[in-house]
Amino acid sequence: MRHQSILEYARFRWLKGALLLSVASAAVYIWHDPPLKPYGGTWLGYTLGTIGALLILWLVWFGVRKRRYATRLGTAQGWLSAHVYLGTALLVVATLHTGFELGWNVHTLAYVVMCLVVFSGFYGVYIYATVPHLMTANRGEDTLDGMLMQVADLDKEIREKALSLPDQILKVVNSSLDGTRIGGSFLRVYTGRDAGCPTAKAVRDLPEVGKRLSGDTAKLNHEVYTLLLQKNEILQRARRDIRFKARLDLWLYFHVPLSIALLATLSAHVISVFLYW
């Protein structure tokens, strides 16, 4: 079965729904003849505001729904598709609700935070549309755990073989065995690089150091070098893998807190408006 993106879920059902909502809102907005000028306090303003607020609550509820594996209310795929498209339609509904009246106040803050949430969501959609392919291609048949174990296995093999090599080489090899790390800091995880990786350094240095060797030692050195090359290749793939995972995750560190902040600004906006009705 062909892979179906959440964007085309159920023959673009939610795209159609979102378009319908947006076009209908825009049409009523154009037809509407407010007492002074369009803003959130006309009957249309209240209507769009109510739709927008309910949409926001429903969109935030997705964070709960996606963890409810047992529920039979729609599929997770359908929910995500609706989340994406209705979140986009929210941009139209809320913009029309403002009547393009913006200022330095809590009302505009709510609008701006909402836009940030929606745009971070767009970025998430983009990430989820592009990164998984790359991730799969990078992993091949392996898993991250598998890669790490392969590295560990290689380490063991290298350690055994390198024991009888000259000290100078052993030092280089040992630094790879004892100092190589993956992840551990945000920068290393997010960039997928480790500028001072001892294994990469060993791979660079070993041919030069090994030039003077001969006989069995040279052969052994060559074997160790081959293993280090393999280790380095696996390390690079593993680092790319955690980088892809980090990219899949990072936008949520904005999307989710901003969504919660949006709940606060939205409440402040709604309550203050009616407090000073």
């Binding site: 991250l144 790490l148 174990m149 590295v151 560990a152 296995d153 380490d155 063991k156 065995l177 004892d178 190589t180 790390r181 993956i182 992840g183 551990g184 800091s185 945000f186 995880v189 997010y190 593993a238 955690i242 995972k245 980090a246 995750d249 990072l250 949520l252 560190y253 989710v256 807190p257």
Partner: peptide, 21 residues
């Protein structure tokens, strides 16, 4: 398998870095 290497490779995700959400 090489527990010391595994110890150097245990923080691989943003969550394991305790990035606050």
């Amino acid at each position: 398998v090489a527990p010391e290497f595994m110890a150097r490779a245990n923080k691989l995700t943003l969550r394991s870095l305790h990035l606050p959400k």
